[in-house]
Amino acid sequence: MDKLKLKALYADLRPDLDQVEKELITSVASDAPLLTDASLHLLQAGGKRIRPVFVLLSAKFGDFSIERIKHVAVPVELIHMASLVHDDVIDDADTRRGRPTVKAEWNNRMAMYTGDFLFSKAIASLANIEKPYAHKLLADTMVELCIGEIEQVEDKRLYDLSVKDYLRRIRRKTALLIRVSCELGALASEVDDKTRIHLRNFGYYVGMSFQIVDDILDIVSTDEMLGKPAGSDLLLGNITLPVVYARDEANVSRLLARIEQGDTTEETRHELLTVLRKSEGLEKAKRLSNLYLEKAMNEMRSLPNSPAKRSLQNIALFMSKRKF
Rank of each mutant, 00 (worst) to 15 (best):
V153Q: 03
G115P: 07
T274Y: 13
L187N: 08
V206Y: 04
T268E: 09
C146I: 12
T26K: 14
G207R: 07
D233G: 12
V143M: 10
F210Y: 15
T265M: 06
K136H: 13
A122T: 08
E224M: 12
A8Q: 12
A246S: 00
N251V: 13
A230Q: 01
L118W: 12
D215N: 07
M297S: 03
L161D: 01
G237Y: 05
P304G: 09
L137S: 04
K7Q: 15
S279Y: 04
D263E: 10
I66A: 12
G47C: 09
I239V: 14
Y292I: 03
D37E: 15
S289C: 04
D140V: 07
F202S: 00
L35G: 01
E271T: 02
Y113A: 14
P304K: 10
I197R: 03
M225H: 06
F54H: 05
K309W: 14
T114L: 04
L303N: 01
A82P: 03
I219L: 00
R171A: 13
D94K: 14
I178M: 13
N201L: 11
G281D: 05
R200N: 06
S27A: 15
E260N: 10
N238W: 06
A124C: 13
L57V: 10
T264Q: 05
H71D: 09
V206W: 02
I197K: 06
P33S: 12
F54Q: 01
S120D: 10
K136P: 01
A186F: 01
S232V: 15
D248G: 02
R200V: 03
G185P: 03
L24E: 11
D214G: 09
G262S: 03
V243M: 02
P132I: 15
Q211F: 07
T264R: 01
S83W: 11
V89W: 08
V213A: 04
L145M: 15
F64T: 12
G262M: 05
P304N: 11
I147Y: 11
I90H: 06
H86C: 11
K156P: 02
Y166A: 02
T264S: 00
E105Y: 13
A257Q: 11
T264K: 01
L78R: 05
G185M: 05
V102N: 08
S181Y: 01
E260P: 03
L167A: 04
A8D: 08
R287P: 00
V143K: 09
E23S: 14
R68T: 15
S65C: 14
E280P: 09
D87Y: 10
L293N: 03
K7P: 06
F117N: 08
T141K: 05
R169Q: 07
Q19C: 14
V72M: 10
S279T: 07
E266M: 07
R277F: 09
D233L: 07
R68S: 12
L56G: 11
A250D: 14
G98R: 00
T240P: 01
S162F: 09
F54R: 00
S306K: 05
R109Q: 15
D18P: 08
P100Q: 06
D12Y: 00
K5Y: 12
P75C: 11
A186N: 02
E149V: 04
Y113D: 09
L236R: 14
D160C: 04
A104D: 06
L235N: 00
L9A: 07
